[in-house]
Nucleic acid binder design. Sequence first.
DNA 1: CGGGTAATAAGACACTCTGTATCGCAAAAA
DNA 2: TTTTTGCGATACAGAGTGTCTTATTACCCG
Lengths: 186, 186
Amino acid sequence: MPKLWNETIEAHRDAVRAATLDAAAELVAEHGPAGVTMSQIAKATGIGRATLYKYFPDIDTILTAWHERQVRSHLEELARVRDRAESSERLEAVLTAYAVLSFQHPRSDLAGSLHRADHVSQARQHLHGFIRDLLVEAAAAGDLRTDVPAAELATYCLHALTAANTLRSKAAVRRLVAVTLSGLRR
Amino acid sequence: MPKLWNETIEAHRDAVRAATLDAAAELVAEHGPAGVTMSQIAKATGIGRATLYKYFPDIDTILTAWHERQVRSHLEELARVRDRAESSERLEAVLTAYAVLSFQHPRSDLAGSLHRADHVSQARQHLHGFIRDLLVEAAAAGDLRTDVPAAELATYCLHALTAANTLRSKAAVRRLVAVTLSGLRR
DNA sequence: CGGGTAATAAGACACTCTGTATCGCAAAAA
DNA sequence: TTTTTGCGATACAGAGTGTCTTATTACCCG
């Protein structure tokens, strides 16, 4: 995409990387994860195919990088929601925000199509830790059940709330959050 | 696999189809969904590559068929569990069985790697309907919350319980079922 | 302003996989 | 036996891959 170098070389390379991930995401949305080729990505990014190989060695790496970027940006959004909410409403606010994100970005999972992704993406582990810490905090306030480790409750939350991407209305998403929350209470 | 024809021609073709799905599943477990080729599947099945094309037009169809078979077999198992359990314990028994299946077969989802799969597999819709009917029955007994449609509760259950495939002990699976169940009650 | 540096586009190349067609072979059926 | 029918093997063109080479262009420094 960028024809002229921005400021430094590294900034230019970052811009190319970002443009590549954008192009790849669009192609995946159009043809599915399996129907995307390096040639298509290079053309859509506006760079040569050989140049693309100097940035990413294969499609799997590109999709993994895109997935990581997506999860990381969601994580930052959730951190903002957490810091903005009162302590007593923090958990509900964050879980609602996560469900809404899943609802609006049904493509963010990619789940099975990545084989090399260490079987659990780095960013997803951060996400899990983030929710777990939130649950520990809520447990200290005495609102949560204590017969299940916080880590397992976090896993439960993340899976239950991804159901949001199959729902059709925001009202349904809110109901899903309510149901999930009531599973956490004693 | 079978070199001589079994009974009828159709039985022979069924045997070849089944052997193909078995071989494909094994290759997927080994190389991931993206790393499997028609050539490999043909060789692993023990048939010629051209012959494989007379059974399945492409890899996507093979993986979809395998996924459907897997879900269907799980569905039959769940139906047996349902019919064996007392009415009062049916829901818990079936959800536990589903969680244990997810726990033992982490590969059954395939989630993102299928593009053509009507975006929701046929068998998975049956599974959703199966759970939904079970929830309607339990609601009639008065144990369930009534502020959320049964279909949404079924979606919630299926997603929450797939978390079982990331857990490490059966005890954790039982805790997950307990948490999920308490989300269903009022 | 001109030379050196670095990233690139374009093309070539060998390789693999794909999807299809053809040709005999062997086993079941008439 | 003769006729079907499924099959393995092979060939073929098209597409994608991963690597390499060459010429071009933009930037930086003296």
